[in-house]
């Protein structure tokens, strides 16, 4: 049963990702990306990580994709970028390298770590106790980075308005 659900979700995610690249219309591509993100959230759920799954939907499908759509619709992006041969080749090479690296990395950890955790492994409690105890310095650094990005965005926005 778990395998069936995984195959369905994975197929949906791959389909969404492929469509997001191939669809000529920007809005359609964004919709395909949303399908991919929601399917990925389902896979997180299968890996007994409900907190990550919910955050995935809230942040990516709910907020980031809405901003994408917002910009696409406000700008009324009509340009249909043709797939040139060199972009296909460059994309294939870059994607292939990334895939090779991912598989290579995963192979090393596959046997001892890559099984779904015990009950409560991916709950909000577990995630936060790791995040705020073990990884508190990187966490705070990322917050500062985001703050800097927000301030920079505000400054840039102001300058354009003046």
């Amino acid at each position: 049963m778990t395998a069936t659900i995984f195959i369905l979700l994975a197929a949906l995610a791959v389909l969404g990702a492929v469509l997001a690249v191939l669809l000529p219309n920007a809005v359609h591509a964004a919709m395909a990306l949303i399908v991919m993100l929601v399917a990925t959230a389902g896979i997180y759920l299968l890996l007994s990580a409900p907190f990550v799954a919910v955050i995935q939907i809230a942040v990516y499908a709910g907020a980031i994709m809405v901003l994408f759509l917002f910009v696409i619709m406000l700008m009324n992006v009509e340009l249909r970028i043709p797939l040139r041969r060199w972009t296909l080749v460059a994309g294939t090479v870059a994607g292939g390298l990334f895939l090779y690296q991912t598989v290579h990395l995963l192979r090393g950890v596959m046997d001892d770590q890559a099984r779904s955790g015990a009950d409560g492994f991916g709950s909000a409690h577990e995630v936060s106790s790791v995040l705020f105890a073990e990884y508190v310095v990187p966490f705070e650094l990322v917050s500062v980075l985001l703050l800097v990005a927000i301030v920079a965005a505000v400054v840039l926005g102001k300058r354009e308005a003046a």
Binding site: V27, M31, I34, P50, F51, V54, I55, I57, A58, A61, G62, A63, M65, V66, L69, F70, M73, G120, S123, A124
Partner: peptide, 24 residues
């Protein structure tokens, strides 16, 4: 769900996608 409140907030944000789709 043990992430009940978050789940509610997350799943209702799908509404925005539908609204934008309809508008566009």
């Amino acid at each position: 769900l043990n992430v009940g409140v978050l789940y509610l907030m997350a799943i209702t944000s799908l509404v925005v996608v539908g609204v934008l789709m309809a508008g566009w």
